[in-house]
Design a protein around this nucleic acid. Sequence first.
DNA 1: ACAAAAGTGTTTTTAGTACACCCATGC
DNA 2: GCATGGGTGTACTAAAAACACTTTTGT
Lengths: 220, 220
Amino acid sequence: MGEFDTFFRSAFSVDKVIFSFDGAALKVLLIKRTSPPYKGKLALPGDLVYPNEDLDLAAKRIVEQLTTRKNIISEQVQTFGMANRHPLGRVISIAYLSVVRAEEFEFSPASILQSAQWCNVNEVGELAFDHNIMLLACMKKLVEKASFSPILYDFLPSAFTLSELQVLQETIFQQPFEKRNFRKKLLSLGYLEDLETMQTGVAHRPAKLYRLNREKWVVG
Amino acid sequence: MGEFDTFFRSAFSVDKVIFSFDGAALKVLLIKRTSPPYKGKLALPGDLVYPNEDLDLAAKRIVEQLTTRKNIISEQVQTFGMANRHPLGRVISIAYLSVVRAEEFEFSPASILQSAQWCNVNEVGELAFDHNIMLLACMKKLVEKASFSPILYDFLPSAFTLSELQVLQETIFQQPFEKRNFRKKLLSLGYLEDLETMQTGVAHRPAKLYRLNREKWVVG
DNA sequence: ACAAAAGTGTTTTTAGTACACCCATGC
DNA sequence: GCATGGGTGTACTAAAAACACTTTTGT
């Protein structure tokens, strides 16, 4: 038996963990599977990778099949390769992470057919395949990245208030921050720009709006 | 054409980035390829994954083919999946990282046949496949992990001096540390135990030996 | 005695923590 | 005018940075 017969009998898939934030909780995009295996079960959106398709492009394709938006960044997180993880054959799966704003992530007809929905990450229940483990790995990665990259700002609109940012960080890091120290710290970092405009239509003193200046971001 | 024919024509391999430290520089284990493609070229050790073999076990197997030692920990780093990365077919490769002591990593007959050798990571030249990129990704991962896990202690013998530890950290983080502050910091962390023995046979004041108490390690 | 690396204390600077009150808007 | 969240300053504490000399061994 030649190498081809022995080894070239496998497939790989990409599964997407797409996060958003609704102002109170971290959400993940799930679909209801329309075909076996695990038909009818909630799962992460994903697909097999075409034989001549780069992995990163497969991740991009899967996102673009779900929404009418373009240019969403995908980041590889981890590969899941237990021999028995897929009931129909040897399929390893590479988990990719994206962070989006739900308001801008308009569902495509294809994702509506699959009952795409935003679920609170703490209330997803049992998912198809090893997708619960994938979700946990991506949540961990998100927390890691949050300390060293501007990834959390992808959850927010381009203009946001410091309170919105604080609630987001408290949700992701799962700890409360003291208001004055939080504001002092963030403004001292120098990458938030005061837009010199205000919230409107709120039943309390309106907050200043800020934007992230990515050029001024420095690691750490 | 069914799903099987379309998709189940791929293979995956595991490539190992095995690091050691010779007291001055970070080293990586390379072999000389004995078969095409890239025959005769330096490469990371790796192999195709068997159809019913877990990925993590494949990583373990590849390490165990290289040395007479057992129980070496492998950690998954990143998956490389450009469609054209392997000249003979669609093969994605999962890079795994290990940290070992070269003194204890006795080469097996198989690795001697492949001219296994420790190369300074800054002097590897052009490697087979996309292995230069893999090496860089694993070096980055090593630096990341070094801040949050006791991985660097796998480079050191069980009894080591603070100076050895300092040189190691300076090499990995590529920055010098001030001696007194370095020692104060590390001893304050509380996970180094004074073995109450000394170096012998050195032409200067002998240093105290310490060991890592992994139970006392705390994250951060 | 000298070369070579080990070992140690104190001051200064910086970053983090804790804490309480006034402000602007919608209703 | 009152409820709601926005916005600010200062004192205290802990950690990090800077810095120079003495000690122990082999040769």
